[in-house]
Design a protein around this nucleic acid. Sequence first.
RNA 1: GCGGGCGUGGCGGAAUUGGUAGACGCGGCAGACUUAAAAUCUGUUUUCCGUUAGGAAGUGUGGGUUCAAGUCCCGCCGCCCGCACCA
Length: 852
Amino acid sequence: MTRYNAKETEAKWQRIWSDQSVFEVTEDPSRPKYYVLEMFPYPSGRIHMGHVRNYTMGDVVARYKRAQGFNVLHPMGWDSFGLPAENAAFENKVHPAKWTRENVAVMRDQLKSMGLSLDWSRELSTCEPDYYAHEQKMFIDFYKKGLAYRGESWVNWDPVEDTVLANEQVIDGRGWRSGAEVEKKLLHQWFLKITDYADELLEGIESLERWPDKVRLMQTNWINRSEGAKILFDINGRDDKLEVFTTRPDTLFGASFCALSPNHPLSQELAEGNADLADFLVECAKLGTSEAALEKAEKLGFDTGLTVAHPFRPGHELPIYVANFVLMEYGAGAIFGCPGHDQRDLEFARKYGLDVIPVVCPPKEDPATYAIGDEAYTGDGAMINSAFLDGLDVPSAIRAAIDRLIEMGAGEGTVNYRLRDWGVSRQRYWGCPVPMIHCADCGTVPVPEADLPVALPEDVTFDKPGNPLDHHPTWKHVDCPVCGKPAQRETDTFDTFIDSAWYFIRFCSLSPNSAFDRAAAEYWMPVDQYIGGVEHAVLHLLYARFFTRALRDCGYLDVAEPFEGLFTQGMVCHETYQTPDGGWVFPSDVIDGDDGSRVERESRQPIKVGRSEKMSKSRRNVVDPELILDTYGADAGRLFMMSDSPPERDLEWTEAGIEGAWRYLNRVWRLITEAPMAPQGTPAPEALDDAAVAVLRTVHQTIAAVTEGLERFRFNRSVAHVRELTNALADYKDAGPTHDYVRRFALETVVQLIGPMMPHIAEELWQTLGYETLLADAPWPKADPAYLVDETVTIAVQIKGKLRGTIEMPRDADKAAVEEMALALDAVQRVTEGNPPQRVIVVPNKIVNVVV
RNA sequence: GCGGGCGUGGCGGAAUUGGUAGACGCGGCAGACUUAAAAUCUGUUUUCCGUUAGGAAGUGUGGGUUCAAGUCCCGCCGCCCGCACCA
């Protein structure tokens, strides 16, 4: 029995593909193009199973489309700027550039050993000046077009480290390393005007037919266009007005307070003369800037003592609170609270003893007695307690309220978006420098194009708190490009989401002097199939959609939607293992003990097996892909990735699963290498026996099923169908020329069908079958429709929906004949006892349901 | 808290999208080969009752629509993802 040598074979074919530049492509207008892209990795050190899953899926699609005759672009690169490199610098005293480039080198080798059909000549890395130079030019173009501006926003500030903290670095209101209580600080920051594109991005979602509905919905909700009203309240005893945004101006008569964000200028102003309020604002600041943290926190308010005049109720006053749940970034940073018809307002009102006035009466309630209990009523109904609005339904009342506000000059109808402008400044070292210069006389001016790129200096130190760019002795000191006087570079760098907002266009051509060659970009774009995790459903994908449009409007290319097809894959999970004292244990350190229970390899401590969770370093439930590639080879790993779980769902990595995949590889290997077969090119026999026809039927049905599976991203079903075919072929043991011929045809088909998933063994078997050309260049098999439908069908017979038996009938048999056969069944006779059935439902070729 | 998703045998999952629930794989059990083991092969495997024939229950949970519900509708429970400075 020959055993398949994965290691040798995989190296062999990887070398051949590389030597022959099989997957390097150029624009070819005579052929249909197909651009397959997986979200490029952050070079964190080594590839993980999530990468293996992601890149296997993309490779299956790329190889399949290639076999179908498409000119397939399938590139790879590195999202190589970002926080982890700076953390590594801090922890291991290694320079981010060195750390990053070494990681890239390791991961490139690892990816190469997966046998991916990548065009490596297009590799890019966002941390290199030949990439980010173009990004700086784009930013300046955006700036000139009014799409980039300098504004202010609040950040998490660690007063000990003297630095801005990412949300993930804030743990329970404290800096993760310093342990200091986080403060909020208002900083000057650069912004991109994504809000200018809110409507276009919203409308564009309609056209994204090959995106998952859930992602389209999430983006729609993220942008959250809402029509409502802006209301200007007169503040008693002051000259200025308080502006609030509401989607429910109809409920204005039910208002019992106004609330300001702690970051609202008025809150800040009042705190100056009110120590208690100032303390309250400090408390609010400890929550950090994450919306989730704010929303989860207990709702607290502080009565400022100020009041506003109710616009519709002369003489009526509403107190102004500062409330920790009001977001400065949304609407006007201030709200009016109507406790009767908003749950959060209701809880707030109950807590602070404010009025709860119902103004919308639900249809089944009596307006005279209707009162709000524990739940605010948010549905439609007739207005009550609302003077001129009484009796109207909600939509009419909204219009009437806005009309009156306009009449009074106290407000207007307005559209608001939850989407905010994209803050792109980061006070960090390892990112693309913002190409701007601050001059005392000329203000903020862009770096002249001739001086680009503004290279990130690598001679920096990380021994001081704060931003290394700021400490660098010379880097930030430049002459103003306008007046020539000494000026200072912007020391902020870009959000790494900018790097990933256009890399897919750069892949179209690594043009040295421009971001990309326009013709090449317009040939390859849009990406036909983009694949990555759902965690990017909103931010990355929305930024990329915006950035592409902004580039379009700056004349770079004529593309609006970058990703025509999107697939979001699930995560890779694994069981978790813990010692009795709660320490996490790597799966590779867990072995079977003498009594069959699990123990730790070294200490022999018993292991508690926990449920399967997303693989993560902190829980140590990780399996190193390299170990799998070494032990079983890339094909087995790839097959397992595609086998059991549907790609959009989480996959549970198991040792048994990978072994099963490895066994299957060897089964196919033996099936082809160990039995008689007609020589290549043997003509088809003139007559086929029943067994041969049955096999051919299975072959063609499998081609159809596998193809459909690949088209619809149901890889696990494709795998199951190929396995069924190999099972059938293992049982096909007739002797003679007909058998040998049919067998060869069937096995060639198997090799072609497994090609996209297990490319190495498939190439090797293709060669074994006598082919001198590459399977990678062979066309995809086509199913013969003549073999796709069976002549007879099995029809289920039910009595009142319960299965009582089946009948075999010719396909498309006459309804009456089917009914007669069904009623003649013993099981049916027993129940009907000769009485005519009440009703018989016949679904052709499927089912007969007898109702008695 | 808000937004989105998922839930089917011991396990991963399949079910032509309202029409025979459990394809395919893993694991288990029994057997063949072997001095033995591994590997491989054959059979079996939703649960319960029954020697068989056969019957009953069954897709997180409670209702509903339908001749027919894993699939559609309403309520609940559990888990996962995102929430703008992680990528």
